[in-house]
Amino acid sequence: MPSETPQAEVGPTGCPHRSGPHSAKGSLEKGSPEDKEAKEPLWIRPDAPSRCTWQLGRPASESPHHHTAPAKSPKILPDILKKIGDTPMVRINKIGKKFGLKCELLAKCEFFNAGGSVKDRISLRMIEDAERDGTLKPGDTIIEPTSGNTGIGLALAAAVRGYRCIIVMPEKMSSEKVDVLRALGAEIVRTPTNARFDSPESHVGVAWRLKNEIPNSHILDQYRNASNPLAHYDTTADEILQQCDGKLDMLVASVGTGGTITGIARKLKEKCPGCRIIGVDPEGSILAEPEELNQTEQTTYEVEGIGYDFIPTVLDRTVVDKWFKSNDEEAFTFARMLIAQEGLLCGGSAGSTVAVAVKAAQELQEGQRCVVILPDSVRNYMTKFLSDRWMLQKGFLKEEDLTEKKPWWWHLRVQELGLSAPLTVLPTITCGHTIEILREKGFDQAPVVDEAGVILGMVTLGNMLSSLLAGKVQPSDQVGKVIYKQFKQIRLTDTLGRLSHILEMDHFALVV
């Protein structure tokens, strides 16, 4: 994948999101292997301009796509893939009243899908469409860049269908997702969380590099694949309309690839034109409109599966009536509230959605109805927002919020430890010299600072030695090549209790 991002070429006709291997024109390309080798690009942008032909009021008969309808489940399912879809609609009884809503608040519980998330729908649909058009064949390999849930859905379907599955996901995604993927037989590649989507090191860039190296491999490409919004247009939206008897006044959905909100909203605009569509985008993402909503100094966020630093091709923002931004604290607070007060075992993005819903639905009156999409299960986040310690460490809970008995030293300040200034190293000294210094002084790690004293990161003896043994660096290389740029900081005025929580999850903390 090139470091400079080429513009994806656009073909003359058809839909841009065809499933299957992508040609340089962004659509299915038939021909000899030699032709494909000559024409197939190194990668295709996940934010390529959409060429979708959908228009409100256009006859369904003019759609270029294969459409399906929700099917009634048999008493005995032939395999677990038949437990994807037909998820329950559940009334939220307490939270709406707590925040003064007059309307009825309903939750579409997508964590009841077989793999635990709304992404099971698009995973199965992308595979079925690729099999139907002859792209996927027995023994082929599926590769997908994902925040985890699409990966789980694909790995689940691949396990049943017999495909090899490789999932490329950023490091910030939970260990629970990784464990589930491994249990399903998927191979996992992790990428830096802070890598831009168009960087060769991003999950998108690495996935395309693997595709170019592995024979008979395919990126189904949830960011561009029409099967993504079509899955929701054909099934999720129809289920909502049936469950609500066609009567709903507002739908609120958090947005990642945009397939969920695009597919549902398009069908609702056709069948229930008075329904307002509300999009939820986390602070630090750029999906919301108008652009002024996205202006923030924050560039990272903890909530998973929603928000991006690019506009995915499948996201149709014209069908969203209003956007709201959400933050991590309210997302996790509301997710825990949904679990504790409503018994809905949902993930953090569901918290984002409901946090926005109780604001947006203030305009609705008694007798009206708001539906929220709860995308995934708490299963993926047992060591994250479900953990009091994690919430404390991230600053989303305060010590006084917890009532468990603490040891005698818990409320003492870090400054009472009488710490001395640490050994520091410059980023320009060599790895070999740094190892000598650390061994001589008896230290395992040291902060790396520039000549102005600005902290650049941390270097550890173990990481340097393993990097040297693996051949990633040489003793003569500058130590700046092996620094940890993500590390926890703590102030002298913070409590030892807070430091204790940090050290339970990290090997060190830097006192500043």
Results as ranks from 00 to 15, higher is better:
Glu110Tyr: 13
Pro200Asn: 08
Tyr163Met: 02
Phe99Tyr: 15
Ile167Val: 04
Cys103Arg: 02
Glu128Tyr: 13
Leu42Ser: 05
Ser61Asp: 04
Cys272Ala: 11
Pro2Asp: 15
Thr68Cys: 10
Leu230Cys: 13
Leu248Gly: 02
Val118Thr: 13
Pro229Ser: 13
Lys97Glu: 13
Cys275Val: 14
Pro78Glu: 02
Arg18Ser: 15
Gln7Ser: 06
Thr260Cys: 08
Asp133Leu: 14
Lys267Gly: 08
Glu239Phe: 02
Val204Ile: 02
Ser227Tyr: 15
Lys39Phe: 06
Gly100Val: 09
Leu248Tyr: 02
Asn93Thr: 15
Thr13Tyr: 04
Gly263His: 06
Thr236Asn: 13
Arg125Cys: 09
Arg190Asp: 02
Arg121Tyr: 06
Leu181Trp: 02
Lys137Leu: 13
Thr150Gly: 06
Gly185Phe: 07
Phe112Ser: 02
Ile167Thr: 10
Pro59Leu: 12
Lys82Phe: 10
Ala237Tyr: 04
Thr257Tyr: 02
Glu37Pro: 15
Gly259Thr: 02
Val178Gln: 02
Val10Pro: 08
Ala265Phe: 02
Pro59Asp: 05
Lys94Cys: 14
Ser63Tyr: 05
Lys172Val: 02
Pro192Val: 07
Leu124Arg: 06
Arg45Phe: 05
Gly246Arg: 12
Lys97Asp: 13
Cys52Ser: 15
Gly14Ser: 07
Thr260Ala: 07
Gln222Leu: 05
Leu184Phe: 05
Met173Asn: 02
Glu201Met: 04
Gly57Leu: 02
Val255His: 06
Ser217His: 02
Leu210Cys: 09
Pro46Val: 06
Asp133Asn: 14
Gly100Leu: 07
Glu62Gly: 12
Ile214Val: 07
Arg196Ser: 09
Gly256Trp: 02
Arg196Tyr: 09
Cys109Lys: 05
Gly185Arg: 10
Val10Ser: 13
Gln243Ile: 05
Lys75Ser: 12
Pro16Ile: 15
Gly162Phe: 04
His22Arg: 14
Ile240Arg: 02
Thr191His: 05
Pro145Gly: 10
Leu220Ser: 04
Tyr233Ile: 02
Ala114Phe: 02
Glu110Leu: 02
Tyr233Pro: 02
Pro215Cys: 02
Thr235Val: 06
Pro273Glu: 09
Cys103Gly: 11
Pro2Met: 15
Pro6Ile: 02
Asp179Met: 04
Gly274Glu: 02
Asn228Val: 02
Pro2Thr: 12
Lys271Met: 09
Asp79Thr: 12
Thr135Ile: 02
Pro6Met: 15
Ile214Thr: 02
Ile143Ala: 04
Leu156Phe: 06
Val204Arg: 02
Gly256Phe: 02
His218Cys: 12
Thr87Tyr: 02
Thr236Ser: 02
Leu77Met: 11
Val118Ala: 12
Asn228Ser: 02
Pro59Ala: 06
Ser174Tyr: 02
Leu220Phe: 05
Ser61Phe: 09
Gly274Val: 02
Glu201Arg: 13
Val189Ala: 12
Glu9Asp: 13
Gln55Arg: 10
Trp208Phe: 07
Thr68His: 12
Thr193Leu: 09
Ser123Thr: 05
Glu144Tyr: 05
Lys72Trp: 02
Ile122Cys: 04
Leu77Trp: 05
Pro64Trp: 02
Glu9Ala: 13
Pro21Asn: 13
Phe111Ser: 02
Gly116Ser: 02
Ala130Ser: 08
Gly26Ile: 02
Gly263Arg: 02
Glu171Phe: 02
Ile44Arg: 13
Glu40Trp: 11
Leu181His: 12
Ala158Val: 08
Ser217Leu: 02
Gly148Asp: 07
Gly134Phe: 05
Arg45Ala: 10
Asp120Val: 02
Leu77Thr: 02
Ser227Leu: 02
Cys15Trp: 09
Ser217Val: 02
Met89Arg: 02
Ile188Cys: 02
Ala159Asp: 02
Glu201Leu: 09
Ala8Arg: 10
Gly96Val: 02
Arg182Met: 02
Pro145Met: 02
Ser32Gly: 06
Met89Gln: 02
Cys15Asn: 02
Ala159Ile: 05
Pro49Tyr: 02
Pro46Cys: 07
Lys30Glu: 15
Glu4Trp: 11
Pro21Asp: 12
Thr53Pro: 07
Thr146Ile: 02
Ile188Tyr: 02
Glu104Leu: 02
Asp179Lys: 02
Arg121Ser: 02
Thr135Phe: 09
Arg276Phe: 09
Thr53Met: 11
His66Gly: 09
His218Ala: 02
Tyr233Gln: 06
Leu77Phe: 13
His67Tyr: 02
Ala38Ile: 02
Arg132Ile: 06
Asn212Val: 09
Gln243Gly: 02
Lys75Met: 13
Glu34Pro: 02
Ile152Asn: 04
Pro49Gly: 04
Leu56Cys: 15
Leu230Thr: 12
Lys75Val: 12
Ser73Asp: 02
Phe111Trp: 07
Ile152Cys: 04
Ala71Val: 12
Ile95Arg: 07
Lys269Leu: 04
Leu230Phe: 09
Asp179Ser: 09
Glu131Ala: 10
Arg182Val: 02
Leu28Asn: 15
Met173Trp: 02
His17Met: 05
Val90Tyr: 05
Thr236His: 02
Ala157Tyr: 08
Arg121Cys: 04
Ser63Leu: 02
Val10Met: 12
Arg266Ala: 07
Asn228Ile: 02
Ser50Leu: 06
Asp221Thr: 08
Thr262Gln: 02
Arg161Cys: 10
Ile264Leu: 12
Ala207Val: 02
Arg18Ala: 14
Gly256Arg: 02
Thr135Leu: 12
Pro59Phe: 02
Ile127Cys: 02
Leu220Ala: 07
Ala253Gly: 02
Glu171Leu: 02
Asn212Glu: 09
Cys109Leu: 02
Leu220His: 05
Val189Trp: 09
Phe112Trp: 02
Gly258Thr: 04
Lys137Pro: 07
Ala159Trp: 02
Arg209Phe: 06
Thr150Tyr: 07
Glu34Tyr: 15
Leu81Glu: 15
Ala207Ile: 02
Ala158Cys: 02
Arg209Pro: 02
Val252Trp: 15
Ser32Cys: 02
Met173Phe: 02
Gly11Arg: 09
Tyr233Asn: 06
His66Glu: 05
Gly185Ser: 02
Gly246Val: 09
Thr262Pro: 02
Thr235Phe: 12
Leu56Arg: 12
Gly31Ser: 10
Leu106Asp: 02
Arg196His: 02
Phe197Gly: 06
Ala186Glu: 02
Pro33Ser: 09
Ser73Cys: 14
Arg209Glu: 10
Pro145Val: 04
Cys275Met: 15
Arg18Thr: 15
Ala38Ser: 15
Val168Leu: 07
Leu136Phe: 08
Arg209Gln: 13
Glu270Ile: 06
Glu270Ser: 05
Arg18Tyr: 14
Thr87Cys: 02
Pro49Trp: 10
Val160Ser: 09
Phe112Leu: 02
Ser27Leu: 11
Lys247Phe: 02
Val90Ser: 09
Met250Leu: 12
Glu213Lys: 11
Ser61Trp: 09
Glu270Ala: 09
Glu144Phe: 02
Gly162Tyr: 09
Pro2Leu: 14
Arg121Thr: 15
Pro200Phe: 06
Asp234Asn: 10
Arg164Gly: 02
Leu28Val: 14
Leu154Glu: 05
Met89Ala: 05
Lys36Ala: 10
Ala183Tyr: 04
Val255Gly: 05
Ala60Asp: 05
Cys103Leu: 06
Lys108Leu: 05
Leu220Gly: 06
His218Asn: 07
Pro46Ala: 07
Met173Tyr: 09
Lys172Gly: 02
Arg45Glu: 10
Val252Ile: 15
Ser175Val: 10
Lys82Leu: 07
Lys25Gly: 08
Asp245Leu: 04
Glu34Leu: 04
Thr260Arg: 07
Ala114Ser: 14
Pro49Cys: 10
Ala157Phe: 02
Tyr223Phe: 08
Val90Arg: 10
Leu136Val: 08
Cys244Val: 14
Ala253Glu: 08
Arg276Asp: 04
Cys109Asp: 02
His17Lys: 02
Cys109Val: 15
His66Ser: 09
Asp35Val: 11
Ser3Leu: 13
Ile76Lys: 14
Pro74Leu: 12
Ala183Gln: 06
Ala114Ile: 06
Cys165Ala: 12
Leu251Lys: 04
Asp35Arg: 07
Gly115Ala: 14
Glu110Val: 02
Ala130Leu: 05
Arg58Trp: 13
Arg121Ile: 04
Thr260Met: 04
Thr5Ile: 15
Asp140Val: 10
Glu9Ile: 02
Lys211Phe: 09
Glu128Phe: 08
Asn225Tyr: 02
Glu131Ile: 08
His232Tyr: 05
Gln55His: 13
Glu201Ile: 02
Asp198Cys: 10
Gln55Phe: 04
Gly26Phe: 06
Lys108Val: 05
Cys15Leu: 10
Arg276Ile: 08
Glu131Asn: 13
Pro200Ala: 08
His65Gly: 02
